[in-house]
Every structure is written in C-alpha cells, then in structure tokens.
Design a protein around this nucleic acid. Sequence first.
RNA 1: GCGAGAGUGGCGGAAUUGGCAGACGCACUGGACUUAGGAUCCAGCGGGCAACCGUGGGGGUUCGAAUCCCCCCCCUCGCACCA
Length: 849
Amino acid sequence: MEYRPSELEPKWQKKWMDDRAFTYHGRKSDKRKYYMLEMFPYPSGRIHMGHVRNYSIGDVVARYWTRRGYNVLHPIGWDAFGLPAENAAIEHKTAPAVWTYKNIDNMKSQLRKLGFSYDWEREIATCRPEYYRWEQLFFIEMWEKGLVYKKESEVNWCDKCATVLANEQVEEGQCWRCDSTVTKKKIDQWFFKITAYADELLRDLDDLPGWPDHVKEMQRNWIGKSEGAYIDFATEDGRKLTVFTTRPDTLMGVTFVSMAVEHPLANEILATATEKQEMAAFIEEVRSFHAANVRDDNYEKKGYFTGRHLIHPVTGAKVPLYFANFVLANYGTGVVMAVPAHDQRDFEFAQKYGLPVKVVIEPKDKKLDLPLTEAYTEPGVMTDSGEFTGAPSEEGKKKVSQWLVAHNKGAVGINFRLRDWGISRQRYWGCPIPMVKCDKCGMVPVKKSDLPVRLPEDVRFSGVNSPIKSMPSFYETTCPTCGGKAVRETDTMDTFVESSWYHLRYCDPHNDTAPFDKGEVDHSMPVDQYIGGVEHAVMHLLYTRFFTKVLADLGYVSFREPVKNLLTQGMVCMESYKAGDEYLYPEELEWRDGKPFSIKNGAPVTVGRIEKMSKSKKNVIDPDKMVAKYGADTARLFILFASPPEKDLEWSADGVEGSSRFIARVWNIVTDNLDLIRAFPDDPAEGGPFADLFRKAHQTIQKVRDEIERFHFNTGIAAIMELTNAAYKVKPATDEEKRVFAFVLRTIVGLLNPFAPHMTEELHALRGGTDLLSARAFPDFRPDALIGDTKEIVVQVNGKVRDKIIVPTTATKEEVEAAVRAKDFSKFLNSGSIKKIIYVPDKLLNVVG
RNA sequence: GCGAGAGUGGCGGAAUUGGCAGACGCACUGGACUUAGGAUCCAGCGGGCAACCGUGGGGGUUCGAAUCCCCCCCCUCGCACCA
C-alpha cells in the first residue's frame, strides 16, 4: 500500500477538527489541566521554519499530555498589531487591517496543513477591538493606581520606523526591527511603572526552577540591582547634590565629582560659566555623541571642569565638579563621586586631568605600590579614612552609610538599571491609548463604559505618519469629566503590551463582559510549558511577568508568575549560497560532482557559512514546499530528530530524506502486516519465543515517555527507530510470535503518534481502530516486562573493559564475583594478585590489582 | 572587559547519578533483489597490522573521567563605561 501524505493528512486534520479532538474544557473537565503555550506568531504572511520548529515541539508535548489523560489547553492566535502592516500599507496601498487579516488567513491554512493540535475555537487576534478593549481597561486601571504616567523624556528614536523604542528594543545601538541607528530624542511619553516591581521581578526569578538559567541571568542583568548608598554633597551655595555609589567604603578617597552633561544643573552651570563658549561646545559635543548612540568599545574619557566645587560630606573639603562624558544621565542620579584610587574610570580621568589619587583601601595582605598604575578595585581594609580606618570593605560600607544617615547626609539605597517601560508609539497600527487631554481637566482617562476606543481600520496612508494623527473624527472628542472640547491621545501602545496578557485571554477568549473570567484563568494558569525563541528572554518575558504582577494587584488573577516551565528553542540554520555578490535560494542551484552551480547561468556558487535562515540570505526552506514534497509528518519528524530543542538546528536535505525513509519504513511494515495485526487486536501479549523483542518494546515505551517528558525528542525518536529495526529483523511464524509482533507494531504506531500524527492515525484506522489514536491513552509499560532472565555484567580489570559475562538477573554480588574469579585475568593485573573488587550492581565489576 | 553556554567519528548528534564512548540518523563501502536502481532489504563503518590510542590542549582527583577540580586554547550568545 502506497504512502500518500497529501491525501491522508488533510483527511485527518479535518477529522480532528470535526471530532473536536483538541478542545479544551476548562473548569468543566474533571481531568487535570495542562497549559501548553507557544509564542504566538506575528502575521507576516508566511510561516517559516522557526515557527514549524517551535510549534512542532509544542505539539508533541500537547499531544503527549492529551494522551496521558490531561485536559490540555493548546491555543494559537495572532500578535497582529505592529509596524510591518503599516510598511506594507504604504508600499501596497492597502489598509493595515486588510493586509493583516489576509495574512492571518494565509498563515492559518499553513499551520493547519502541519496538523498541530490547536484548539482553534480559542483563536484570537490582538488587533480586534474585542481583544484590545480590555487592554485599554487595564491601562486605565493602571493609571488609577499610579502605575502609568506621562513624562517628557529622552527616548530612543528610530527615524526609519518614525517611532520611539523601549530600551529593550535597542540592540547594539540599533533598532531591533529595521537595524537602523537609534538616536536620542526628547518627546512626551507614556510609561508603565515597571520599576515599581523591579525588586519582585528580580526576587521571584529564584522561584522559577523550570526556567533556563541563562534566561534568568539575562533578566537579572537587565534589572541590574545595585546596593549602595545615596550620598549628599553640598554645593558652595548650600544646595544638595546627591550621588549614588556601591562603594561608600571609598568615600574618603573622593578627590572630585563627575556629572553627566545632560544633568538638569548643567544649564545653570553653563549660564554662570566664565568660558561659556568653550563649555557649551564641550556639552554639545558630548550630548550629540550620546544622542548618536555610538557603540564604541572604549572611547576616550573626556571631561570639563565646571568651575564649581562641592563640599565633601565627611571632611568638609572642597572637591572640584567636572562634566564627564562617561557619566550616564539616566543611571543613578547622573552624578558620580570619583575615587580614582579605587575605580578604573576615575583613575584614567584623574591621570588625564592631573587630579589627586588618594588611596583609602589597602589589600589585606600587602601594601599597594605607589604611585598606582591602575585603580585597586578589590575589597580590602579602609586606610587613611579617619574614624573608619581599619574597617574591612564590607563592614566599612555599613559604617559609612550609618554615619551618613546619622548625620543626615545620605541614605542606604538601591539602584536599578531597569528603566520604566516606555509604551507610547507614534504609529497607527496599535492599540489606542485610552486617554483624553482636556484644557480644563488635564489628562483624563476615557470612561470605562465608552471602551473600546476603536482604531479606525478604513484608513489611507500618505507617507509614514500615522493617519489618526490627522483624522479629526478620531481625535476630536469631549472631556469625560467636564464634557468640554478635548483631544484624544493619538499614540498607540507598544505591541509588547498585547503579548503581555494574551495567554490569559486564551483561557476565556470569547468573554464580552470582562477580559476573562477569574475562575477560568486561575484554573488554567499558570502556563505549564511555554516555548519560544531566546530572543524574547528579556523583553517579552520580563513584560509578561510584570503584567501578571500588576493584574494580580488589580485583582484580576490570583498568581504572580505566569510561566512555570520555559523552553527556549534554538534557531533553524542553513548554509547560504552565493554567486558573485548575489545570494541564491537552494532551489536555484544544481549540483554537479558535489559542487553547486547556478541554474540560471551556470555560474559556480560558493557555499557560505551555516547561519540562521533568513530571507535576506535566501538560505530558507519554505514549509509549504516541504509539506508538498514529503508531507507534514516528515517535516515535523526531521525537525525534532535533527537536534535537541534548545540547540540550533542545521537544516539538511539528506537528513529530511532519512526521516522520510523512516516514516516509509514504519508505514511499510505496518501495512504489510495489517491482517496479522487485525488478528490480534489490542492483545497485550507475552514474550514467549520473542522475549527479547517483547522486552525491547516495553523498554522503548518507558524510554520514549521519559524522553518526551524531558524534551529529548531526538533520542525518543531514535528509540522508536531501534524498535522498528528490531521488528524488521524477525519473521513471526507461530501465533505466539505473531501476537508479540502485532503488539510491537501497535506500540511503534502508538509511540510515533505525537511526532507523526497523520500517518499513525491512518495506520491505526487501517489496522481496525475505530477511535482516534490521538485521543487514546499513550502506550504504557509493565515494569516486570522490562527485566529479562539474565543480565550482562561488564568486567573491568584496573578500569579497562576486559570481558562481559551473562549471569541470571537474580545474581548477587558474591555470585557475580565468583563467576569473574573463575576466569583468568592474571595477565592484566599489575601486581599479579587481586587487591580489591568494586561492584556496581547490575552493571559492572572492576578487578583491581 | 564581565557573565552564560559549548568543544565527542567524514557530518548531525547519543551517553539521567563518575561505570561498555560513538545509540539513532546522514554520508560512504559491500552484498541481495532486479531489465534497471537515485527504490527496497541485509551487512560493514573512530584511528592503528597489532599491543594499544582515542571525547579542544595540559595537569590533577579516582579502582574507574566525555562527565568532577585547576590552568590554557577556540567558538557561540548576552551585557558592556551601570558608579
């Protein structure tokens, strides 16, 4: 019987849908719930192999736990707002909504063809008012709680995208989307107060054992908590200028203070400066350098004396105040106490401008060589520090802080690197911010009963600007408080807001009176397994954790962490091909004697390095073409077999052939033996003459369960391949043998099902199954069937394998030892006699001598 | 510079805890079937004639190390003047 995936795959996809095989029943079900979530796609138009990998991994997990008797929530939807829709609108003269909905339709049919076990009844698209109205409600409630504010601030600006970017969206000084250089710009911005949760976001990472360490570490670094002290220096006219330091123990070593040129005081200083023009030039130079966001490895430290001095809080000494180009305006207070002896940056600065270097920390066991050639930054013992002299660094930090507090000149303090989340986007295709500006009442939220603030979908684009910004019918409104004339906010929200709570909406996606039912969400959450790309380690995963905590505080949910287990899958990579300067698609090549040439013009082609599949390098394989050529089952199986999920996967056409061959091998051995299987339906069998094969089947069941549960799909599939190879080797003749053989074939089909769902479903039906294999209990093993009558013990002499012996399973240490002693290993013994015997039960016996 | 991860045959990758290194697949070689084979099935496949040698390199702990410890090399990723 021929294997025709193009016929049988659509058939089963329809059957699963008709039978509602993967419908989640929420609280109505008495089964235990399992929430399997994959990061939802942006509807760009076509799915790519990265999606196929992400969703194939999730699908195995979802199908497995479904068959293990869980009520599995496995939803899918669309992260549908975002810039590409606008770019497409400008280019193709279509409305972003039209483009987006068309893409969703397209990609949906692509996903369907891959046979993923989604509960399609829960599909959502974030660009629909039924979804974003609730986001607007959250926004208003956050505003009411003081978690939203608007402020003019210097922000990251991408000229090409004509919008603001969050800190998290700037990568190496460039826009995460379009790679153009990000500049700084002052603009009125809406912020979510994520910093109010900084401590909790950091602390709770320790309660996420199911998250990869590197992701937690990246979040820790991003939050960047530093403990230290805020210390008040006084200006000469008696005002306070506060610095933040993590090294209060070095306070007595301060010989100057550095300030960012963006500091508010800079203007005042400039106004009274003697060399005004020169200072202004310096400030402008540094400002524009910062604004340009250049990522230089180690640019030269530069400073400019402000002409002013500050009073040291302890000694009362006058120390000069400098502008310094390496001081960041938006970290700490924008002013830094400089301790050249114990901070490398300050040291370099002091050297350059001839400022004094005062040692106040000595290493414990030696004296520092003076003059210093570099800063001593390690902890040590305080020296030359008045009453603090003699205290070790850690103790000194406390003592100095206490002194400052007692004398009202400072405070113990914590500083975070994390900044508030700027969510305003000056673009059109996003969730409107539900605020109104009234000349009389100021900034006022839209009445909750008036939500949603609908984004007009029927728009025309002229140029890059957001159409609603020039659409009076949108922005002209009345004030919710006084009823007077008012203007709507025309900025929209960062699309990361939508993805911060979509997993909650999935729990109750059609609710039209609330974002979701609390009971449903509390029942279905947290996400048991979340899978997605590591590129979201900071941005999305930090925002969604923040949102969960906010929603908990607003009373919407009863938990504070959304995701129990996280898997970050690796990239899908492939070699690229280039003819001259031009990249070629793999299907534009022909291979002659193992060398690639361009089909178009016969030019020789160079093979590039293996890197992430991307359209720009044309090193892509189209999932649709894969499915058309091999079927979805083969595509999925290859992706899962080629590499473990967290690692990058190298696409290999030969590897796909191998997976295809294995699928056909299973298909052939089962379809060739259909009568035999039908003759022994669902017979648990016993080993008998096929004891080894029978045992291997049970061992394979155990192994595959294990491997799926720890995401080692490649080895799980390998185990099924082994069992299949073993089945090919036997020729059952007697009924007893046929009974075992039938059991083994059924087992193979059952185990392979989560990986290759369509062909196994077909085989199950062909062999007489009247139910859905996908809904059947996953194969189980009998512990007693795992063990044979005998076991093999490896015999080592001095740690080297010299023999293997077969003993009865029940053999004790003494019996194994006796069996080994009966043999002659004297030629391997160094001393000629046995000194010691080490026995590892059921595995190995090592003779030492 | 700091932090994390990795380095195993010709290739992708196996080896829950320190216990047979190289499962499984690809490529390759040989055989069977065949008018034919780029189909299918079967077999072989780290190096070395061997003793032996082999998990990036060097040292160590141990009866025993891919796995643990120390030093070094290389690659990937994240952060990068964060006071």
